[in-house]
Design a protein around this nucleic acid. Structure first.
Lengths: 219, 219
DNA sequence: CAGTGGTCTAGACCACAGT
DNA sequence: CTGTGGTCTAGACCACTGG
């Protein structure tokens, strides 16, 4: 049934409901229910009195993308340098954010991230070790989200907070900016289903990074 | 029909389809279609073999909200002081962002925004005068988004960019911070359908404002 | 005008929950 | 077992579009 839409160009007409009734020998309500599913998926568009058409792809609500994906999209080469990767006991803040108990084992992964060789941000990621046993031993992956994906834990949504601040001294050293230079701080709780799979705090050089996002959905 | 769901607690059962058939004297397909609409809206949840229930509110993909709505949600009183409201000719940047031609008439509206009486941000909004004729003459509304809504132009999605910076001298005067203090800059192109209805640049005091958003969708 | 989607009827059989 | 939603049939009338 989806084959009707498979490679069709946006705007091209789909077969009419009554034609599909004859072609498949089913009732029109049945045809309509099948097409309804494609309409809510955004693959088809009905226009009363005219017909049903292949919809132009709807603008997506901002998808959750990793640093690597984001930089690649900007045409930059993403690199990461691990500054720290170890097992820790969750402190009160991290425990609450990860929805674990204080003292539970978490993985703390700090990376300096570069784009085209230039220091861009420092990211502190915290992961629930229960969800990804053996993560540290298995060799650190390049992309955290890919690694989570391989375990069926790719985050699909997140709660983010963003604010402006100035760099602390040690942050400035890694980012190659003076202490007190403006930075963008980005905190994230990333979810797969209703499980928190990642909590992270990132600090970006304000002179090199502007966050882009699309909010809300078209229609 | 929605009254069936109006004040009901999440998880409470809705009347069964066959009961509604008897109550309203319509066919079951009709009842199902009406309920289907509520299901896709996320108000009802079907459980085969058990019944239909009032759904727990779905986590929303970040909705587009105005400053007023956002502050209200935080429990703060939003206030606005108009610093400037006039007709201008679009410069190159604003023209491109608003998808109009350079020199076309645009409305420029600058406001100092407060929360609980404290200076929070300065917002420069640009509107396409073609879309909202007589806007300046009709008395400035409190909420821009409400005013657009009344004209059927409530933005449903936007392209945002966010970065960190330091306050310029005149910004600092309005925001009551020294020049050079950290600020969050937020630019927005807001759309209703595929029409750009608002282009804005806001500058927030970093010490008072953290942006919160939810990105991606559950499921 | 003929063709389209939008809506509706009055039944039917199925798989599945709970008792 | 009964009741639920899931699916389906074979029609029907409507409002709208385009030629």
């Amino acid at each position: 049934m989806r084959t009707l839409v498979a490679g069709a160009a946006p705007g091209s007409p789909a077969p009419s409901e009554r034609e599909l009734v004859h072609r498949f020998g089913v009732a029109r309500m049945t045809v309509r229910q099948a097409m309804d599913a494609l309409v809510v998926e955004g693959l088809l568009e009905r226009i009363p009195g005219r017909g049903t058409f292949v919809a132009r792809p709807r603008r997506m609500t901002s998808r959750l993308s990793s640093y690597t994906e984001e930089m690649t999209r900007r045409g930059l080469l993403a690199e990461s340098q691990t500054l720290l990767a170890r097992r820790e006991q969750a402190g009160p803040g991290v425990a609450r954010a990860l929805s674990v108990s204080e003292g539970d084992a978490v993985i703390h992964w700090r990376r300096l991230r570069r784009a085209d060789g230039h220091a861009m941000c420092i990211e502190d990621a915290y992961l629930n070790e229960i969800l990804i046993p053996g993560f540290l031993q298995s060799g650190m992956p390049t992309s955290l989200y890919d690694a989570l994906d391989a375990r069926g834990l790719r985050p699909t949504w997140a709660e983010d907070s963003i604010n402006a601040d100035v760099a602390a001294a040690e942050e400035g050293e890694h980012l190659e900016i003076p202490a007190g230079a403006p930075v963008l701080r980005h905190s994230r709780r990333a979810f797969a289903g209703d499980k928190v799979v990642e909590v992270s705090r990132s600090v970006y050089r304000a002179d090199r990074y502007t966050m882009w996002l699309q909010v809300g959905a078209e229609d």
